[in-house]
Each structure stands twice: as C-alpha cells, then as structure tokens.
Design a protein around this nucleic acid. Structure first.
Length: 227
DNA sequence: GGGATTTGACCGTG
DNA sequence: CACGGTCAAATCCC
C-alpha cells in the first residue's frame, strides 16, 4: 500500500529539492526578485505540503472501504478537495455560481459553481465552496468532475495541469491550487455516477469524515499545524 | 441588453 | 421527511 504514495512523495521531494537548488542558484547569482523567487518558493512549499499530506493520509485510516470517498495523488484527478484561507478566486478556470444553500450543522452557506463553459463546451465540472471556519477564515473547496473545456487548448488528461518553467528546471503537472497558495490536503471524492478515472483505490481509500476531522479539528482549533 | 448572481422552488436520495 | 444539489425566474451590474 505504500508504493504509490511513496512514489508520489519521493517525486514531490525531488521536485522540491530541484526548486530549492534553483532558488539557491538565483540567490548566489544575485538574480533575486519576487517574480522569480515567488513561484519557486510556492513550488517548494507545495512539494512539502504534498508529501506531508501523503504521510498524514497513510498514518490515518487507510483502507476502510466503508466510505465511497477516497484520497488520491495528483494523477488521475477527477475531483478533489482543497481548504484555503481564501475561497480561491483564481484556480485557473472560470466559474458561474448557480446556487447557494445553508448546510445542516454548519454556520455558513455552501456555494455551488459550475464551469462558465458548461453549455458551450459541454463541460460539466463543478465546485462547491463552503466557509468552514471564521477566524482565520478557511474555505473548503470541493471540485467535482473534470474540465473538458480546456481540452480545446491543452491535450492533457490531468486536471488543470500547467507548466512552469525556470531555466532548466521544469515543474510539470502542477495542479492549479498548488501554484498559488498553501493548502493542507487534497482529497478525492468518488461519485458513482461519474466516470472516474482509475487510480489505485486500495492505496487511497480512507474514511473521509475521519480524515477531515483530523485535518480540521472542531472549532476553535489551537492546532499550529494549520495556522 | 447581456451576462452574472441571488434565491425560492423543485427533485432525488436515504 | 430532512437534507443536499440543481433549476430557473428575478434581480443586479457593467
């Protein structure tokens, strides 16, 4: 059960190491500047976040098949969840809000968005955004289904992948939410009605509620891990 | 006027 | 019947 997550973790660590080396070169050559360093720093931080979340997942409640929800690595993403201090206004896609609902046992309403090109390009990607904590504000964004609207321009099956290039160092297959800000974890939710791409379910199945309870203890939380 | 947002109604599921 | 997700008419904004 370790193989795939371990592989992802090693990849992420290697990537982070590469970015760190590149950053070091820039610093040594005094080619320092926010434009160059910020993406590198973000990339490094993202690598560590990915590794940490992978190991948190492994230490959690792996392989309970009672829940239909699963956690997955970067590849094969069909849907995933992200929690951030902002509702992530720019995740690489444009969204149109189509609903808002109060959720039981939650102080905040949940907002429903679908891809702006839902009709034009038959893209049925949606996302849900819900504020899960007030102070500091934390938003949970759940992405559902896969964008097909960008297939017009990018022939890549990976959700929202983009490429960032710094001299010879290339960061590939970077998910949109990983490029701009810290996040705590990524999970996938399988929905039976959607044609989910297969990733190794046995490796990633967890109990979703328990996982997120671990990620965000009931408010108020003193956990310095997240703030 | 057209596109985006709001919001109550509707529907499916458990 | 409660709840969550979606629809669609009304409204807002540029």
């Amino acid at each position: 059960m370790f193989s795939r997550i371990d592989h992802k973790a090693v990849e992420a660590l290697l990537h982070g190491q590469g970015c760190a080396n590149n950053l070091k070169m820039l610093l040594e050559n005094r080619e320092i500047g926010l434009v160059w360093t910020e993406p590198l720093l973000n990339s490094i931080l993202d690598s560590f976040s990915l590794v940490l979340s992978s190991f948190q997942n492994m230490g959690g409640h792996v392989s309970e098949r009672s829940s239909k929800k699963k956690i997955c690595g970067i590849e094969g993403i069909e849907s995933y969840r992200d929690e951030s201090p902002t509702p992530r206004p720019d995740d690489g896609f444009t969204w149109r809000k189509y609903g808002q609902k109060p959720i039981k046992d939650s102080l905040h309403q949940r907002c429903y968005y679908r891809c702006t090109y839902a009709k034009d390009r038959n893209c049925n990607a949606t996302k849900r955004v819900q504020k899960i904590q007030d102070n500091p504000p934390v938003y949970r964004t759940t992405y559902l289904r896969k964008h097909v609207c960008k297939d017009f321009a990018v022939h890549d099956d990976t959700y929202g992948s983009e490429m960032i290039q710094f001299d010879q160092v290339v960061s590939k297959q970077v998910m949109p939410q990983l490029t701009t800000m810290n996040h705590q974890a990524i999970t996938m939710e399988e929905e039976d009605t959607y044609n989910i791409q297969e990733c190794d379910i046995n490796d990633y199945l967890v109990d979703d509620d328990q996982f997120w309870a671990n990620q965000f203890p009931p408010f108020p939380s003193e956990d310095p891990m997240f703030f």
